[in-house]
Design a binder for these strands. Structure first.
Lengths: 133, 133
DNA sequence: ATATTAAAGACTTTGTTTGTCTACGATAAT
DNA sequence: ATTATCGTAGACAAACAAAGTCTTTAATAT
């Protein structure tokens, strides 16, 4: 794992889409204005979400982005992974016979954090919580 | 938090000192050879450990570095913090009225990981486990 | 004095992220 | 069909942080 600004924009964008209306279609133009970021830059981030299957895109006039998964299922981890990939937060490059014991501990630590982020869904932060039952 | 190679070298160096002998004095020359890293670079890292109070240094001929704390007390987190400082892994720079709810979740995730690393002691990895009782 | 060793600062290199620019492709409206 | 709109993609430039080097200084034992 890893965190970059791109992940931050992705998280905010999806949360925004959830809060507005899950079914709605958003142009990158509108989204970019929300977060004061350039259209081309945000569109790249959104494209990564599309490739990860979290968001759907329609090209052409009156196109845009919509959420693809039901909002109850979208976790923090889903988005982080879509943007950052599956790399490790800590990578010991030091050569060792039987694997690095420090690496093992650091991996465990990361996994604990990731589990939390996997369970935490974005819609929980939404003020408009629907179907909470 | 954050991880860099410097942290990795610091972790390995302290683990090495623990495994050799907690009371022993090590020159940066010897330590640097262990991990195939330059003397000046590693000395900077060690200086940070000194400033954090984890390691003691003696200048001059037959000087060197020794562990300062008892090995049962040195945690992963101690070393990480000594090198990386207290920054957050995730920092949302987006302006918001009531603080960023995403930031809050990310902080919680980080804290969970840090707690694990705080409890995990380096000497647990040592093959020569002393006074384990 | 001299050799050894840690500390410190300036500096360079390297790598990654951020962000821009431009061209291309898809779609709807006319 | 043409045009305006909107997402995709690649090359590129700028900014930043980390990694690593070089050189000088300060402390200490012999």
């Amino acid at each position: 794992m890893k965190y970059t600004k791109a992940t931050n924009y992705a998280l905010h964008t999806v949360l925004y889409m959830i809060e507005q209306n899950q079914g709605e279609k958003f142009s990158v133009h509108v989204l970019a204005k929300q977060f004061q970021v350039s259209v081309t830059y945000l569109s790249k981030i959104l494209t990564q979400l599309v490739k990860a299957g979290l968001v759907e895109s329609v090209s052409g006039a009156s196109g845009g982005y919509t959420l693809r998964k039901s909002i109850e299922t979208i976790s923090f981890m889903d988005i982080i992974q879509a943007i950052e990939g599956n790399g490790l937060l800590f990578e010991c490059g030091i050569q060792q016979e039987k694997g690095c014991p420090i690496q093992k501990v650091m991996n465990d630590a990361e996994i604990i954090m990731e589990k939390y982020l996997q369970e935490k869904k974005l819609f929980e932060l939404s003020s408009i919580k629907r179907n909470q039952k």
